[in-house]
Amino acid sequence: MMFGRDALSVRGLGANSIDALWRLGYATRFFGLTLSHSGTCGRRPRLVVREVYYTGVLSLVIILVSGLFVGMVLGFQGYQTLTTYGSESALGVLVALSLVRELGPVVSALLFASRAGSAITAEIGLMKATEQLAAMEMMAVDPIARVIAPRYWAGVISMPLLAAMFSAMGVFGGYLVGVVLIGVDEGTFWSQMQAAVDVREDVFNGVIKSVVFGIAISWIAVFEGYDAPPTAEGVSGATTRTVVTSSLVVLGLDFIMTAFMFRGM
């Protein structure tokens, strides 16, 4: 809001802090409003299905390709490091654990924020700028139930599925490099992996992470879109803020959840 001289002054700092608090409170109220207006999504699942197509299905290509390449790079790098200790049989463990616990949920969340989150914000922001949301209200159609909630739930549904596909694809990429290209023994690769990866501790915690990321990103995306100033500039600024904020929030939440889940017990 305040740029130039004011942004550096104490007054500017105070104004910005209060503005940030204000927005946080407004965003929280908006989140509650979205949840309480979600009944329409249950009665008309078609609305959500349509948005799952736009947020989930259209994100598939970037998620799958990135997952494959991340896994392949992990295969190379992991092998390089593990040979120093003569334990390249643990390559499968390294690839699977780093993907399932961290990289799968986090990297796919970052990609999801920039691929789908920005699209949601831009769409809603433009709807607001062209007064479509206001027109809906005039026709007694609730824009939160009809526009916001389906997009929010589509994001929440898509995110864990995308993260799971990212991890599975990454493990396959690690297998391609480790076993097919370098020649780590195939039996050791899989058996060590299965012995080390625990379904509840690792896979399930990864899914929890991606669900939380899905909620956070979708919330930020729909809020920024709804809150965007109804100008071309405002929509572009809101889109940028969605990507920046949700990336930072994802990394922060990941740290907190990792501290809770893997304290090294």
Partner: peptide, 27 residues
């Protein structure tokens, strides 16, 4: 066709979870 794609998407996601649980992890 949109429904078909979404159906495929959800199936693939669930399949990936099952793979992670059975093939990568040890159920």
């Amino acid at each position: 066709t949109l429904d078909l794609w979404v159906g495929l998407f959800v199936m693939a996601g669930v399949a990936a979870l099952v793979i992670l649980a059975l093939k990568v992890g040890n159920m």
